[in-house]
Each structure stands twice: as C-alpha cells, then as structure tokens.
C-alpha cells in the first residue's frame, strides 16, 4: 500500500497518521528550523521558528497534523525573512553574549542564527535585568539566555516527575521560575542527572565546574550547520503519542 504524502518546497514527504508536518519532515530528513521542538517531547508550538505556509496559509509545522496532499512552503525568501525576524526578537529579548557563554558552539539559538545568516539582532536591545541563580551545588541557572521554550519545564514534569520549573509573569515580563518559596534552585529537588538538566537548547542550565571543555572547532555545531544534524531530531514514539 502506498503511504500518504505531502510536499515541502516541492519535495515529496511520506507521513504516518498522527504525525505533525515537522515530525514527518524530520523523519524524511527534511530540515525545518525549530527551537522549542524536541524529538522526545510532545510539540509545544511557542517559538514559531518552524512557521511554514500550507496551501498558502501560515501554519506552525510542529503542531499541525500532516495531511495528504498538503503543499508546504518552508524555505521561501518570505518565510526565511520572518524566521530571521523571530530569531532577532529572541536575541534582543534576552542578554545573549556568546563569547562568555559555555554553550557557545553547542547552542541551538546560535546555530540557527548561523544557519539563517542573522548578522545582527536588528531590533533595539531590551537588556533585561535577570540575576543568575548560582545557589545549587552542581548547576548554574543563567536566566539571561532563556528563550522560554519550556523544554526544562516539560522534561521536569513529564520525565523527572519533579516539576522543578514553571513560568510566571506575562508578555515581555514572562520568566522562568523554580519550585521553591525562596525562588532558589538549591531549595528544589533538582539534580544534575535530571532530564531537565539535559534539554536546554541555549545556555541557561549549566553544569558547574565544567567550563569550555570542548575546544573551538570540535563543538557540536562547529563542523556542520544545524540543518546537517537533521537525523538527531527524528521524532521518538513518545513525542508522537496521543494527547494524554
């Protein structure tokens, strides 16, 4: 039996029922930019970097169920332009000073900036005041770099069963909080071995006493761009589960 397909920029992509456009694309080796998507988690749809047009209408590819015959536009000048603007918004919203960040070279936000040739943040910087939390013995939280993808929140709730992280505030003042009356990570049951410690796409959750361990040139995105790592993002069965 022929499996159902749709097209992305003219290329035919097969899918299984229940897959999102993003999942089908990544399974087929077709790269769609993303930050809040993670292969082991259910789609979230907040970063909007995976915005595409489906039959001429804008859509979020990580949350849109794939359907036969869809005509998906992804790498068009118009959409790339919008994705650049979204990256620039994230860059000015926080304080992203790559030279001092241990995640540099392994950071998805940075790698996507390179991928899309974002030379400048373009917009005016917000320079928010976001104090770091160094209270935990093993982990540093640098909120300056948080892009609010909620992956740590999802990992801590769904995998670790700890609910260490959550969001508070609203709009531009929305921010990550931890599950303690003191507001300090040290007063939670967070551990370095938690899944939530492994999923941050940027440099918020960092292991202490490990600094710049990998030389420049050997870091994750040094050799090949983000899009060349498409095989890493193939969805797992968990992420394609039914809404619970």
């Amino acid at each position: 039996m022929m499996s159902a397909t749709f097209t992305i920029d003219g290329q035919e992509v097969p899918f299984t029922p229940g897959q999102s456009v993003m999942q089908a694309a990544l399974s087929a080796g077709v790269f769609i930019p993303h930050l809040c998507y993670h292969p082991e988690f259910r789609p979230h749809g907040s970063c909007k970097l995976c915005t595409v047009k489906v039959n001429g209408r804008p859509a979020t590819s990580c949350t849109l169920p794939a359907a036969a015959g869809m005509d998906v536009e992804s790498n068009t000048p118009e959409i790339l332009d919008k994705r650049r603007a979204l990256l620039q918004m994230l860059l000015v919203e926080g304080n992203h000073f790559c030279p001092s960040c241990e995640k540099s070279g392994n950071c998805k936000l940075q790698a996507l900036g390179y991928e899309l040739e974002v030379f400048t943040p373009h917009f005016n910087q917000f320079y928010p005041d976001r104090p770091v939390d160094a209270s935990h013995p093993d982990v540093l939280l640098d909120f300056n770099r948080c892009i609010l993808c909620e992956l740590c929140i999802r990992a801590s709730a769904e995998v670790d069963g700890k609910n260490v992280f959550a969001l508070s505030g609203r709009g531009i003042t929305k921010h990550l909080i931890v599950n303690a009356e003191s507001g300090k990570l040290a007063d939670t049951n967070f551990a370095l071995t938690d899944k939530a410690a492994q999923v941050c796409p940027v440099g918020v959750i960092l292991e202490k006493r490990v600094g710049f361990a990998v030389p420049i040139g050997q870091r994750h995105y040094d050799a090949a761009p983000f899009s060349a790592h498409v095989a890493e993002f193939k969805p797992t069965p968990e992420s394609q589960g039914e809404r619970s």
Partner: peptide
C-alpha cells in the same frame, strides 16, 4: 559597517547595562 560583537549588540561593555 558594524564590526564585531560590541558594535552589534554592545558586547562585553554592555554587561553593565543591568
């Protein structure tokens, strides 16, 4: 032309901005 991190986003000197 803006050359380098400091010209582009303030860079290290801008770490005083908060």
């Amino acid at each position: 032309i803006a050359l380098g991190a400091c010209a582009i986003n303030g860079g290290l000197p801008a770490q005083r901005n908060h």
